[in-house]
Design a protein around this nucleic acid. Structure first.
Lengths: 329, 329
DNA sequence: GAAATAACTGAAATCGATTTCACAATTATA
DNA sequence: TATAATTGTGAAATCGATTTCAGTTATTTC
C-alpha cells in the first residue's frame, strides 16, 4: 500500500493524504475524514524509508558497544532505548567485539545519514577514532570515557575508586592488592588505578608493586592475577577494578585455602546484578549504567536540536555498596 | 556528497557511477578508473536510505526482545549480530519490556519494509500476535517458543526439564519442590512444568501441590516462593525453572537457617554466566542462547531467499551442568 | 458588490540512489 | 563491405513519501 493507493481510494491526491497524515496544511474536514477512513480500513502505514529519504531524518539512533552480551552494555542499551522510544526513535546496535577497526567502520557507516545520532560506548579512543569523529555528519556522544571536544557521559571513576580504597583503609587495611586492566582503557585502566595510588599516598600507605597486577576484563584474569599476587605475598584486602575480576580473585583465594572475608577482604566496581547474591555478597561501587544510557540519549537529542551544545561533560553518580566481602581488621 | 557530485567530478553520468559502484553493466576501463579515483578521494559512501528505497531492501534485521538488559537477550542479540554482520546486515533492536501491546506495534512497524526480516524472542504469543504475523510482509522467526506455521528456534525445554528432575530423583530426592512461572509463557511456564510432573510420574514420585509455587521471573520471586513453600514443608530439593529463581530460593533457604546443599539441594535452568561462581556453584541446564541467536538469523536469511521454507522447527541442544548445589541423599 | 484574504487542492519537483531504454560506437561475423 | 552482435553511455523513470507552487473556491472586509 502506497500513498498513491490511499489517495485513489479516498478520491484525493497524494498531497492531501500527506497533509492529513502529517496534520499540516489545509484539508477540508470531509476529505480528511474520507482519508482517515481509508487509512484505518487498510491499516496504512507510510514507508519509513521513503520518509527518511525525503525528510532527511532516519529516526534511528546508533549505539556502538564493545560487547553487547555484557551486563554493562545491555543496561546502557536499555537506557538508550527507553529515551529513544519517547522521541519515536529506533535503536540500531553496532557490536564491535572490542575490534577498533570495526568501531571505526561503524562510525563511518552510521554517520552516513543512516542514523540521526550516535552513542559510542568507548573503551579505547584513539587518534584514528578522533579523525573519523571530526568528520561526522551527525552528533555523537561518548559514554564511559572523557574525550575533549565531545559530549561525554562519564562515570565518576576517580572518586569511586578513591572512595573504595579509602573505605578499605578506614577498615584498617594496609596491604591492599590491586587488580587492574590495561591503560589503553583510560577510564578503567588509568583513572581507577590513579585514584587507588593517590588514596594510598594520602593515607601514607606504602605502595607495593608486588601487590599490583594488570590483566584483561574477565573472571579468569581475576583468578590468575590473584594467584600471581599470592605467590609473592598475601594481602589483607584486594581491590579489583571490576566485579568480574573480584569474583575471579575470590575464587583464587578460596582455592588457596584462604577465607573471604575472614582472611582477605575483596571489593570490586560495577555492582553487577548478582553482586549482592554472591557468597560473600560483594562490596562494590554501584554505577547507574541504565541512567548513563538515558543521559547519553538525551544528550544526543539535544545535540540534534542544537549542535552548539557539543562538548558538555556529564558525570554520573555512584554509590558505595558495602557488603559482607569486607571485614575490618 | 551525492552520486551526482561524484558523476560531475569524474566527468560521467550518475548512471555510470552507479554501474561502477555495483559492478554491473558495461563501463569503459578508463572511466571506471576515473570514477574509482574520485570515490576514493572524497571517501564517497552512497546514502543507504536512498539505496534501500530503490532496492526495496534495508539490509537491516529487526530483533524484538522482551527485555534487552537480561543475559539471555543479550546473548541472543550477540548471536544475531554476528550472523547479520557476515551478510552485511545491521541489527535493529526493539525492546518491549514485556509489554504485549509494544510487541505488536513493533511487529507492525518493523514489517513495514523497514527491516528485511524479524526475529522475535517470544514469551507469550497471543492470537493478536498471530493476526499481525499472518499479514507480515517480511519473514519472521520465533525464538524460544514454538508457533506452528512459523519457523521457530526452540530450546529443548521438555527434555532439559525432564533430565533435571530425573537427575534429582537419581540422587534419591523424593520431595522435590518446584518454582515455576505463569503459564502464559508456553515454553517456561507450561513445558518445563509438564516435564517435571511427567518425570515425577514416571518414577512414581507423588506430586505434592504444597511443594509447588508459581511466580514471576526475578530473584525476589524465587525468594518469596521458597519462603511460601517452607511454611508448609521443607523439601530435600528445589527445582527452579530459571537460575534467577534458584538464586532467590537459595537465599530464602539460607535465611531460614538451612544449608545448601547439605539440607536442601537447589537447581535452576539457564546457566547464567555466574552460575558456576555462586556459592554453592549452581547445578543447572546450559542453553546455547548465542547459538540460538545465530540459528534464528540464519533461518531468517534462508527465508529471505526462499519463503517456502517457512515453518521449520529447530531445536537447540542443552547440557546438564552438575555442580555443588546438589547433594545425593 | 468588489477587493482582499483565507481555505483548499493537485500537479510536479524533490530526496539520492538504480535501472530501463534508446542510441552511439566498436568489434565480430558472414 | 554489409550486417549482426557487443560494448558503452546518459537521459529519464522509478522507489514512496513530502512540499512547493500555482491555481481555484470560499469567506471576510470595506
Amino acid at each position: 500500500m502506497r500513498i498513491k493507493d490511499i489517495a485513489k481510494l479516498a478520491g484525493v491526491s497524494p498531497a492531501t493524504v500527506s497533509r492529513v497524515m502529517n496534520n499540516n496544511g489545509y484539508v477540508k474536514e470531509e476529505k480528511r475524514e474520507a482519508v482517515l477512513k481509508v487509512i484505518k480500513e487498510v491499516d496504512y502505514q507510510p514507508n519509513p524509508i521513503a520518509q527518511s529519504l525525503k525528510n532527511q531524518k532516519s529516526h534511528m539512533l546508533g549505539v556502538i558497544v564493545p560487547k553487547i552480551s555484557t551486563e554493562t552494555a545491555s543496561r546502557v542499551v536499555a537506557g538508550v532505548t527507553e529515551v529513544a522510544k519517547v522521541h519515536g526513535y529506533q535503536v540500531l546496535i553496532a557490536n564491535t567485539d572490542l575490534d577498533i577497526e570495526e568501531e571505526i567502520n561503524y562510525l563511518k557507516f552510521l554517520s552516513n545519514k543512516s542514523v540521526d545520532g550516535i552513542i559510542m560506548m568507548g573503551t579505547e579512543v584513539t587518534d584514528r577514532h578522533l579523525a573519523v569523529m571530526d568528520k561526522l555528519a551527525v552528533p555523537i556522544v561518548i559514554l564511559g570515557q572523557e574525550v575533549k571536544g565531545y559530549t561525554s557521559i562519564i562515570h565518576n571513576d576517580y572518586d569511586a575508586s578513591f572512595s573504595m580504597t579509602e573505605y578499605l583503609i578506614k577498615q584498617h587495611h594496609r596491604e591492599i592488592a590491586f587488580i587492574g586492566v590495561d591503560e589503553k582503557d583510560e577510564a578503567v585502566g588509568v583513572v581507577r588505578k590513579k585514584a587507588y595510588l593517590d588514596c594510598l599516598n594520602k593515607y601514607a600507605v606504602k605502595v607495593d608493586s608486588k601487590l599490583m597486577a594488570i590483566g584483561d576484563f574477565d573472571i579468569d584474569t581475576g583468578y590468575q592475577m590473584m594467584q600471581q599476587i599470592l605467590t609473592h605475598k598475601t594481602p589483607t584486602a584486594v581491590f579489583a577494578v571490576t566485579d568480574h575480576l573480584a569474583i575471579g580473585a575470590i575464587h583464587a583465594l578460596l582455592d588457596a585455602g584462604l577465607r573471604v572475608p575472614d582472611d582477605v577482604s575483596v571489593v570490586g566496581i560495577g555492582d553487577i546484578k548478582l553482586a549482592a547474591y554472591l557468597n560473600p555478597p560483594l562490596t562494590t561501587v554501584h554505577y547507574t549504567f541504565k541512567t548513563s544510557g538515558k543521559m547519553a540519549a538525551e544528550a544526543v537529542f539535544e545535540l540534534m536540536e542544537d549542535d552548539t551544545k557539543q562538548g558538555k561533560r556529564f558525570m554520573t553518580t555512584f554509590e558505595l555498596k558495602t557488603r559482607a566481602s569486607v571485614k575490618a581488621i
